[in-house]
Design a binder for these strands. Structure first.
Lengths: 237, 237
DNA sequence: ATAATAGTGTCTTTCAGACATTATCTA
DNA sequence: TAGATAATGTCTGAAAGACACTATTAT
């Protein structure tokens, strides 16, 4: 049989296939806390529980998996987050009551300000601090996905400045250090932190300063490729 | 409607879903070369081309995605590889002629010896050195999956001794260094390489030595948790 | 002036790079 | 003994940790 004949006769339904979804763990940093975006589930299964933004791939709308993740995040936040990375794919017969299911999980970062107005305007989307997560019942295995995303981001904080994407476009070095400390779960040496960022020339000094109690801090923005830079040596943990 | 009623009425076929497969890039090191396991495709599509070991998830046999990957690798090599890690998931409408498809890709390592007899006994499975890959037409986007797996393993070689899983259970330090050099694509300082492994106490000296031309080399085996260890400082590249 | 926060100076420590030297095997 | 390969000694350099010190604002 030729390949063409094979394709004409191919029946996608011949074998039972898993359900497949794409979910995202979207983090931000606000008021000194690390927060995750949760969505209240409008439909079964797990109706009424809170879970990660995501859903089935739309074969018409989505031309890639990251497209699908970004489409959902845009729906829920009003913006395309500046950082998204594929985390891991989870699959098994138990994680969804409808049957064998697979979810491709993404990890993303956005500033609180970028989506504040959009999120304030809807009732079924909220930022939840990672501390409060323990007191909320989450849908499916989403608690595990958040744990894994957090651990990955923690590693990133040790050898990159990717966490800067959880801040507004313009930020101070002490603010950035705070995000890293939140993720790593440990205080960092101011000097070490600044030194490595300066030496790698990852930030642009805007020339402006921000003042509130004490000496004003210089304001920086990330260079275009700064998110892709990895230090050769990790911070201690 | 109750969740129970919802589940009873749920029709998995209601929405068109992507095809979903699991593929693995299995590496080994043999005769100073890095090699990848390829399988000749018996069926359409891409019949006759060589591709990665993998296939559709079997909802009865597989209880997780890694199960599915390991089942295929066992079929093709006769053994369960000692190292497997999820690499990345690829999805889109173009990568498989049958339609929108997703593949969850794993990266794995095994010693050449462990599966030599099994692989020699079948005609549709072979080790191909990464150099030769350029001259072989590969199915789907498998060339890209191999490139990505190799790049990930290259990174691992800079901060871990995961590449040791591409060697037999017992190996010498010069052998291990050679695998790292193959992956990183650069000669390493003998002293630096040995020092970090010694200091981290990742290997057990078997007490035996292997002799062939020159001073005999000590034989080591990995400690149980050595694959999970990461150095805080990378080798240069 | 004081408190608060931002930012620097500088010494120590850690660990990889470089490369010369020594050790132990076979032919 | 010569050649080959394994393993060590040791100096240098790069970059993080520690922490005291200075700088700049508001009240």
């Amino acid at each position: 049989m030729s390949e063409q004949k094979y394709l004409e006769n191919y029946d996608k339904q011949e074998f039972e296939a898993p359900l497949i979804t794409v979910d995202s763990v979207l983090f931000t940093c606000h008021e000194g806390e690390l927060k995750v975006l949760l969505v209240e589930r409008a439909n079964h299964p797990e109706q009424g529980k809170w879970g990660l933004p995501g859903g089935f791939v739309d074969l018409q709308l989505d031309s890639s998996l990251s497209d699908s993740a970004l489409r959902r995040l845009k729906e829920k936040t009003g913006v395309i987050p500046p950082y998204i990375e594929q985390l891991k794919t989870y699959g098994g017969p138990q994680r969804d009551k409808r049957g064998w299911s697979v979810t491709v999980c993404y990890s993303a970062l956005v500033s609180f300000q970028a989506c504040k107005s959009h999120i304030d305007s809807v009732a079924d989307v909220q930022w939840v601090s990672v501390e409060q997560l323990n007191y909320i019942e989450l849908a499916f295995d989403h608690r595990q996905l958040i744990v894994d995303a957090r651990e990955r981001l923690r590693q990133k904080a040790l050898y990159s400045i990717v966490p800067a994407y959880a801040l507004p476009e313009v930020f101070t070095l002490p603010e950035l250090q705070q995000v890293h400390e939140l993720l790593i779960g440990k205080a960092l040496q101011k000097k070490s932190f600044r030194r490595r960022i300066e030496q790698a020339e990852l930030l642009i000094d805007t020339g402006d300063k921000r003042s509130e109690r004490g000496r004003p801090a210089s304001l920086y923005r990330m260079k275009a490729d700064a998110g892709g830079f990895n230090f050769i040596r990790n911070l201690e943990y």
